[in-house]
């Protein structure tokens, strides 16, 4: 079932939630992001693909300002991203982030990982935060692991906990930075299933991934990047069957042959 068919998400509906306008970013000599224009609407699932080094992870990380930008503006829900301090922390609480390397807090249990944000950032009571955390952990299928430490879990389980940790903040948008790239093949599916589920429930998502299957199944729109620029944007169906640019044809030719 695709996101469109499920009826809970529809491309083109909803007002703009994340807007990147004229974003430029350099790493020394490297022009990492070139004049990026991207609008993500509420409830939309945007998948960003492209060869490694194309700037797709950097793009994802600028949206919650884990990377600063040199020029341009990024707005979330109509508001400019704050520069730093408490306002920036407050913004990040609104943006969920899932990393390639999970980054669960190694010294805290699974349950504590999920409750830390709600308790410390949202000021939620411990009992309430734990109740909610257990619901979320059940939802991603690791409820029975709540008392364990991250290192005791498999990669796929850790990544699902990381998703639950981000969801516990009730974010407006979820960013996924290559969430399955560090996983063994048999664990990729369990993480993607959770993500597809999220997409179907109407979560706004920006997903950097190499999982073309996920892009086809869950994406409303595919953004193809190369050399720091957005080369092509289209629906998954159009993009995968009729890529317009040579770079995209070349890229798809390389990854889809096997």
């Amino acid at each position: 079932m695709t996101a469109q068919e499920s009826g809970t998400v529809s491309a083109g509906r909803g007002e703009p939630l994340v807007v990147l306008d004229g974003v430029q970013k350099h790493f020394g000599q490297l022009h990492a992001l070139k004049d990026i224009e991207l609008t993500v609407k509420r409830g939309e699932v945007v998948v960003v693909i492209g060869p490694s080094g194309s700037g797709k992870s950097t793009l994802c990380r600028t949206i919650n300002r884990l990377e600063t930008i040199d020029e341009g503006t990024i707005t979330l829900d109509g508001k400019d991203l704050p520069q730093e301090g408490k306002a920036l922390a407050a913004l990040r609480a609104e943006v969920g982030m899932v990393f390639q390397s999970f980054n669960l807090f190694a010294h805290k249990t699974i349950l504590e990982n999920v409750t830390l944000g709600p308790i410390k950032v949202r000021g939620m009571g411990k009992a309430e935060a734990e109740k909610k955390a257990r619901e979320l952990l059940d939802r991603v299928g690791v409820g029975h692991q709540a008392e364990k430490y991250p290192a005791q879990l498999s990669g796929g389980q850790q990544q699902r906990v990381a998703i639950a940790r981000a969801l516990a903040m009730e974010p407006k948008v979820m960013l996924f930075d290559e969430p399955t790239s560090a996983l063994d093949p048999e664990m990729i599916k369990e993480v993607l299933d959770v993500m597809v589920d999220l997409a179907q429930q109407g979560m706004t998502m920006v997903v950097v991934t190499h999982e073309m299957g996920f892009a086809r199944t869950a994406a409303d729109r595919v953004v193809f990047m190369a050399d720091g620029a957005i080369i092509e944007e289209n629906t998954p169906e159009e993009f995968f069957t009729h890529p317009r640019s040579d770079r995209a044809k070349d890229f798809l030719g390389k990854i889809l042959k096997h």
Binding site: L66, M97, F99, N103, F105, L116, G117, V121, A166
Partner: peptide, 24 residues
């Protein structure tokens, strides 16, 4: 990544220091 994860859930610098980085 631990500091980034702390920041990503909205912890301030002081919170991410005392709750995430320094204990480890």
């Amino acid at each position: 990544g631990q500091a980034e994860a702390g920041r990503a859930i909205g912890l301030t610098f002081a919170q991410s220091m005392t709750l995430v980085i320094l204990p480890q």
